[in-house]
Amino acid sequence: MRKLKIMVANFFCDLDGYALGRPMGVVVDKKGAVLVADDVGNAVWLVAPSTTR
């Protein structure tokens, strides 16, 4: 299994450090994107590399 580096920090906090969401589940899809379930925000976030370089 490949080692992953954390590239997302403070993703669920505002500038004052207050939580805007609460990640409850994380999974990697077939293309390598990360899906994060947020139970406070009632959302699923997709984290993937940009397509432009």
Rank of each mutant, 00 (worst) to 15 (best):
W45Y: 15
M24S: 05
P49M: 01
M7L: 01
N10Y: 00
L4A: 13
G32D: 08
N10P: 04
R2P: 13
A9L: 14
K3S: 10
A9T: 09
I6Y: 00
G17P: 10
D16V: 04
A19D: 13
V8C: 02
A37V: 08
A33H: 14
K30Q: 04
V28N: 04
C13K: 05
W45I: 11
A9N: 06
G21K: 03
L35H: 13
I6L: 14
G32Q: 06
G25R: 03
V34T: 12
K5V: 03
L35C: 11
V36G: 09
W45F: 15
A19H: 14
K30I: 02
V26K: 07
V27Y: 09
M24E: 09
D16A: 13
Y18V: 08
P23M: 00
M7S: 00
F11K: 10
L35P: 00
D29F: 15
A19F: 09
P49S: 06
G25W: 09
D16S: 08
V47D: 01
V27G: 08
T51G: 07
K5Q: 02
L35W: 12
V47N: 09
G25Q: 10
A9S: 04
D38R: 07
G41L: 14
V44F: 09
R2A: 10
L4Y: 12
K31H: 07
W45G: 00
V40K: 12
V8D: 04
D14L: 04
K3D: 07
L20G: 12
L46M: 06
F11T: 05
R53V: 01
R22L: 13
G21H: 03
I6E: 07
P23C: 01
M1I: 02
L4E: 02
L35D: 03
D16M: 07
R53A: 06
L20S: 05
M7Q: 07
V8E: 01
K3L: 08
F12M: 00
D39A: 03
M24G: 14
Y18Q: 00
A33F: 05
V47Q: 00
L20I: 11
M24Q: 08
D16L: 09
D39M: 10
D39P: 05
D38I: 02
F11R: 02
L4M: 06
V26M: 12
K3E: 07
G25D: 01
S50G: 15
V40R: 13
G17H: 11
N42T: 04
N42K: 13
G32N: 07
G32R: 00
D38C: 15
N10S: 02
A9D: 05
T52C: 04
D38G: 10
T52Q: 11
G41W: 10
M24H: 12
V27K: 15
V47M: 04
C13N: 01
R22K: 15
W45V: 11
Y18C: 14
K5A: 12
W45H: 13
D38L: 11
V26R: 07
T51Q: 13
Y18N: 12
F11L: 02
V47T: 11
V36W: 10
D16H: 04
D16T: 01
V34S: 08
V36T: 09
R22E: 08
D14P: 05
V44I: 14
D16G: 07
R53S: 04
V40A: 08
K5W: 11
V40G: 03
R2Y: 05
V34C: 15
T52A: 15
M24F: 09
I6P: 15
D14C: 12
L20P: 14
